[in-house]
Design a protein around this nucleic acid. Structure first.
Length: 425
RNA sequence: GGAGGGGUGGCUGAGCGGCUUAAAGCACUGGUCUUGAAAACCAGCGAGCCUUCACGGGCUCCGCGGGUUCGAAUCCCGCCCCCUCCGCCA
């Protein structure tokens, strides 16, 4: 969330940011609610001060009549406090509700517009030309006996799947492969829980709960299945005051990711592209505000390095303001070339990295203190995909397929996979 | 899952209705002393918020949420977490 105290003075900036995002937000309502909260806090503080004085006065011995009057006055003050507390609580609920509608500010350079208005920054690698009709990942998977979607649907539900044979090895190898460049950059690896408390999940301001939610909840608990290890990595330092010397704090997390994909039926959803469960290696950074843009570049460069090593052609796009999630200030996606996609191949999103500035940290209460300062400051948070397994499989199989239906394994991956080529059975 | 015990400031730990402005120790940060360090001594040392141009003033927080009371760290209720033992189990 944004800082409620700066809403009024930054009003124009916030209005402009919402306009660029195409988001309706009740900014003036939030400002008004914030004023009511501050007023109620001031009133309650003054009353509590009087109560404290009154209570201190009651600590000595009193004549029965005096005691009786003292008790009566105490009771009156208590009732008054009850009223003020109630008013404060109502104003706070109102403020929270209004704040929840206001997304983060947007980066001044972010392209303005919707999904189609992304800015292509560069293309890297050469799109393969096949002297045969290339197959899509489903057909390749069939030839190589890699997936079982029918079993996934039968045993679990549609958009679940089984990985088989070399796909199993690929899943494991890709995870291990992604960890090395991260270790080189000083990331601490984690295998995180796949579930998290709702209070933590809410700190990340994902999609709304309710019919539009992307998040699975576990019945009769306050747990959700995580949609990304961003939640469990970021949650690690909820409510913490970090040591400035530890910043930037770089975390890498492997987890399963669960997404309901509500409302996305039929949309680019063939095969492994959009599924309810997948494995992802995620990067997460806590840093000082002044270094978050550089960290964003770092995360993007790591993602590029990984796709280059996998010899997968890709392009880098900057996501347009209207397509940013609420916490994101700026976002870059890598779209890998997927030969089997669309008509003769298309780019498809395989990674995404966002700079969330202090938007998540404010709710998570992740702060740090600068050397020599007495004030705690909110950290900035960033996240980025190192490897999302299924979509990487789509690009990997598609780009490295051969006429005989086998798939070459890129050199960099061979030590991790233990195979040079995946052959039909 | 069952039975006990427990959650107090960075850590240890006292307090168990008004003498708490949460003791004391450790750690940490300054200072004195010292060639330097250690020791000793002195002082400081949590978070969030309201208010103020500022200096400052004030409020809240003893796992979390309710309740009793004029007054709660202290009593009552619910929940969460940790420890020990038992059961179950990859």
């Amino acid at each position: 969330m944004l800082d409620p105290r700066t809403l009024a003075e930054r009003r124009e900036e916030i209005v402009e940011s919402c306009r660029r995002r195409g988001v309706e937000a009740d900014i003036d309502g939030a400002i008004a609610a914030r004023e009511r909260v501050a007023a109620a806090q001031t009133q309650l503080g003054r009353l509590n001060q009087r109560r404290n004085e009154h209570q201190a006065a009651g600590k000595r011995k009193l004549e029965p009549a005096q005691r009786e009057a003292h008790v009566a006055e105490g009771r009156r003050l208590k009732q008054e406090a009850g009223r003020l507390e109630h008013a404060l609580a109502e104003a706070e609920i109102e403020l929270d509700a209004k704040l929840a509608t206001i997304p983060n500010l947007v980066h001044p350079d972010a392209p303005v517009g919707g999904e189609a208005d992304f800015r292509e920054l560069r293309r890297v690698g050469t799109i393969p030309r096949f002297d045969f009709e290339p197959l899509d990942h489903l057909a390749l998977g069939e030839r190589l006996d890699l997936f079982d979607f029918e079993a996934g649907a039968k045993v679990a539900a549609p958009k679940f799947y089984y990985l088989k044979n070399a796909a199993v090895l690929l899943e494991l190898a890709l995870q291990r492969f992604a960890l090395d460049p991260l270790a080189d950059e000083g990331f601490t690896p984690f295998l995180t829980p796949d579930l998290a408390r709702r209070a933590i999940v809410d700190g990340f301001a994902f999609s709304p709960r309710g019919p539009e939610t992307q998040i699975y909840s576990v019945a009769d608990t306050d747990l959700d299945l995580i949609g990304t290890a961003e939640i469990t990595l970021g949650g690690l330092y909820a409510d913490a005051i970090l040591d400035e010397a530890d910043l930037p704090l770089k975390l890498a997390g492997i987890s399963h990711c669960y997404r309901t994909e509500a409302g996305s039926a039929g949309r680019e959803s063939k095969g492994l592209y959009r599924v309810h469960q997948f494995t992802k290696v995620e990067m997460f950074v806590f840093c000082r505000p002044e270094e978050s843009e550089a960290m964003h570049e770092l995360l993007l460069s790591i993602e590029e390095r990984i796709y280059q090593a996998l010899e997968i052609p890709y392009r880098v796009v900057e996501v347009a303001t209207g397509d940013l999630g609420a916490p994101a200030y700026r976002k870059f996606d890598i779209e890998a070339w997927m030969p089997g996609r669309g008509d003769g191949g298309e780019y498809g999103e395989v990674t995404s990295t966002s700079n969330c500035t202090d938007f998540q940290a404010r709710r998570l209460k992740t702060r740090f203190r600068r050397a020599g300062s007495k004030r705690n400051e909110l950290a900035h948070t960033l996240n980025g995909t190192a490897i999302a397994v299924p979509r990487t499989l789509i690009a990997l199989l598609g780009n490295h397929q051969r006429a005989d239906g086998s798939v070459d394994v890129p050199k960099a991956l061979r030590p991790y996979l233990g195979l040079d080529r995946i052959e039909p059975r």
